[in-house]
Write a protein that binds this DNA or RNA. Structure first.
Lengths: 227, 227
DNA sequence: GTAATATGAATGAAGG
DNA sequence: CCTTCATTCATATTAC
């Protein structure tokens, strides 16, 4: 009901879109916005959870004098200590990110040589074999395709929640302590640098043109997140 | 700085409105883009650093058997995975009966065509998609098989572990009851879920210079310095 | 409430 | 490439 004058606002939005697009605005597709949104929220969540975890653990340890930046350069993975309990390979977060990026660029990832390259690149971020990479792309393609098929197939095909469950449990906005995340975000602004030429596209990962590396892109690249 | 529920819901509606009605894309000012950039980079860096920090810490702790793999998994990259999780299909009683019947007859329930038929038949008795049917048979087969294995493996009525633990070798993780770490992964997920409807505007507008540093934020500052 | 279980779905891998 | 399996994840439900 807040948006009963929907159409007006829509028009406004459109005007805004046009204006800003022409002048100074960046236009993002809804998909891009969605992706960005998810990314931010996810990082926020991870940050918060890890922070909490660390906080609780650090009570029992003295980290005085430990340099956090370079002590543990090992890529994030469950490999390397006894956490390892799985036989099946699972991509680390970094690896996954890279894989997704490569996949999105859609280049011929099927080539054997290409796989080799990718695998060796990914090996820097954790345990991986060429077969793993190969399988990943294979599955990714197949499942992406299947999902597409399924969604286009029928109008009623979309699985929905049980009719009984709908609308009964709506209180999913549980109070999450966002203060910590806020502080984190604020405290780290020194991570940020000021090259405004870097487009938003780079953040989303659809970069085609690689420009000069500034600190920011270096950072992004270093963490293998989006570039 | 706390997000009020009301605000969040409001943001939800707004985002919904935008997503559904704004066809042409979302416009962001340069400033907003800028801020987004900061936030993503900051979160990315923090997430990574914290993850590594935690990993190193966990060496000194005995987390035996706790699988942390998913903790480090970027929810973003789990495309189509968790996002749809909250609308899980459940067969109606009638559907279930039919499914069981078909399964018992044991005939080629596997064919893709067969699945299609079954699904369309079941659709007369309630919501269902082909994928649902497919999964059902998949799970039914697997679990039936596993149960069979378990019962044949040991002649005694030994109390078994969780049904899913049966039949695997030892490197498995035992269900650890109450550990902080145990819930981290879930926590991340649910955070992500519960907040995935939060509007991006809120995220953008969230960065303000509130320096309410808690003890932990010192860490963050260290990161900042290292950057 | 907490722990155990049931179960839909995701996913790495194998077979064709 | 496709299908299928084995395992794992996440959550709803149930039992205590």
């Amino acid at each position: 009901m807040e948006w009963e004058n929907q159409e007006m606002q829509q028009a406004d939005e459109y005007l805004l879109y046009q204006t800003q697009n022409l002048v100074c605005g960046k236009v993002m597709t809804d998909e891009q916005v969605e992706q960005l949104r998810r990314q931010i929220v996810a990082y926020a969540a991870i940050s918060e959870q890890l922070a909490e975890l660390h906080k609780s653990i650090s009570v029992h340890h003295d980290f005085t004098g430990i340099r956090l930046g370079n002590l543990y350069r090992d890529p994030i993975s469950c490999v390397g200590h006894k956490i390892t309990a799985r036989q099946r390979w699972t991509p680390t977060a970094l690896q996954l990110q890279i894989l997704e990026n490569i996949y999105e660029q859609g280049t011929g990832t099927t080539g054997k040589q290409k796989i080799k390259e990718i695998a060796s690149e990914l090996a820097q971020h954790g345990q991986i074999s060429e077969t793993n990479a190969y399988n990943w792309f294979q599955n990714r393609r197949a499942r992406s395709k299947r999902k597409l098929q399924a969604s286009s197939g029928s109008g009623n095909g979309e699985p929905e929640a049980r009719s009984e469950d709908v609308g009964t449990k709506d209180q999913r906005t549980k109070p999450v302590s966002s203060d910590l995340v806020n502080n984190i975000a604020n405290g780290v602004e020194s991570f940020y640098f000021q090259n405004s030429d870097t487009g938003i596209d780079q953040l989303i990962g659809k970069v085609e043109s690689s420009r000069g590396y500034d600190s920011y892109t270096n950072l992004v690249e270093q963490y293998g997140l989006l570039g």
